[in-house]
């Protein structure tokens, strides 16, 4: 059975939405003739022309701002960050104008844009290409933040993000582009604000997102062999959190671990655990725990890089401690 690779699932989503709505366009470095650094826009240039798949000069802040202006005047641009880390250079346009402008303008303008691209820690790409920006952008008001994790949700979420009338930061993970899966037939979308209950369990809740979903799936299997029945939730939406799904799970398991690739300080887990403590304090039988990356720039050396991010055995160890010792 032929599966679809994740980057092709994203490509299908963009292709279908561009065919569906002629106002949808793509801006970015090498998105056109080159087909995108990870081939997410391959051949769309030939199909839709150079204005709809616009190769931009290397000027991240300005072409991101251009997307804001284009969105304000009727287009629905998708901005590709060749690497999400490069969007640090576009932080001002993303925060001041994508995020805040609808509010500041008193509802005069809407900014239907998607900012997408490869993020996360790759394999020995060095610190600048292995960033975890989701936490940096988390406090910006007015933007939705989504992280895809499988070919199926990548396609459905991308289509939903393009159709949404708000700016959406869409995180893809550089190490997940070659995941393969058979996609549902026909036109489908996934809700941008709903977490994915990956597997059910009764002993503890593991909450994660993006590539860590796959580390957690391994850990859940290992825990099963140890007689521990873990429930796994993939957040999908990093902003806003789907607190309904999360709360329902914690009311069942009374124990929670957040597994994340971003740094511990000021991370996604920090915010999530604060919310869980506020909303589910009486339900918890153990302290809520974060398993996060180290608070350091991602090192180049392979061993050091592995030590920087969470590995499946650490998830297993912590889960056992929490369930067995009630830590």
């Amino acid at each position: 059975m032929a599966g679809t690779l994740l980057f092709n699932a994203l490509r299908e989503a963009i292709d279908e939405e561009m065919a569906r709505d002629s106002h949808v366009c793509v801006f970015g470095e090498d998105v056109g003739q080159y087909g995108g650094s990870y081939k997410v826009t391959k051949d769309l240039y030939e199909k839709y022309g150079e204005l709809r798949v616009l190769d931009t000069p290397i000027a991240e802040n300005s072409f991101t701002g251009m997307a804001v202006g284009a969105a304000m005047t009727g287009l629905r641009p998708i901005v590709e960050g060749m690497n999400m880390g490069f969007l640090l250079l576009a932080f001002n346009q993303i925060s001041n104008n994508m995020g805040m402008l609808r509010y500041t303008s008193g509802g005069n303008f809407t900014i239907p844009t998607v900012v997408r691209g490869p993020g996360g820690v790759g394999r020995q790409l060095g610190a600048e290409h292995s960033q975890r920006l989701e936490a940096y952008f988390h406090a910006v008001p007015g933007i939705k933040i989504v992280a895809c994790s499988t070919p199926t949700n990548a396609k459905g979420l991308m289509k939903a993000a393009i159709r949404d009338n708000n700016p959406v930061l869409f995180f893809e993970h550089v190490l997940l582009y070659n995941l393969s899966e058979e996609l549902p037939k026909g036109d489908y979308v996934c809700a941008l604000d709903q977490a994915d209950l990956v597997s059910e369990g009764k002993d503890l809740t593991i909450i994660t997102y993006s590539r860590m979903r796959h580390h957690c799936i391994k850990a859940v299997q290992l825990l099963k062999d140890e007689g521990i029945d873990a429930e796994l939730i993939d957040l999908i939406s990093l902003k806003p959190f789907d607190m309904e799904t999360i709360t329902r799970s914690i009311k069942k398991t009374h124990r929670v671990i957040v597994v994340e690739e971003c740094m511990k300080t000021g991370g996604i887990g920090a915010e999530l655990i604060a919310l869980i403590t506020e909303k589910c304090f009486d339900e918890l039988d153990a302290r809520p725990v974060r398993l996060s990356s180290q608070d350091i720039p991602t090192p180049y050396n392979g061993n050091l890089e592995n030590l920087t991010i969470i590995q499946p055995h650490q998830i297993v160890d912590m889960s056992q401690k929490i369930v067995r010792q009630g830590l």
């Binding site: 802040n61 300005s62 072409f63 701002g65 804001v68 202006g69 284009a70 304000m72 005047t73 287009l75």
Partner: peptide, 11 residues
């Protein structure tokens, strides 16, 4: 300026 450029691009 980039926002204005976007409006001109839309045109």
């Amino acid at each position: 300026i980039p926002v204005a450029l976007g409006a001109a691009f839309t045109s």
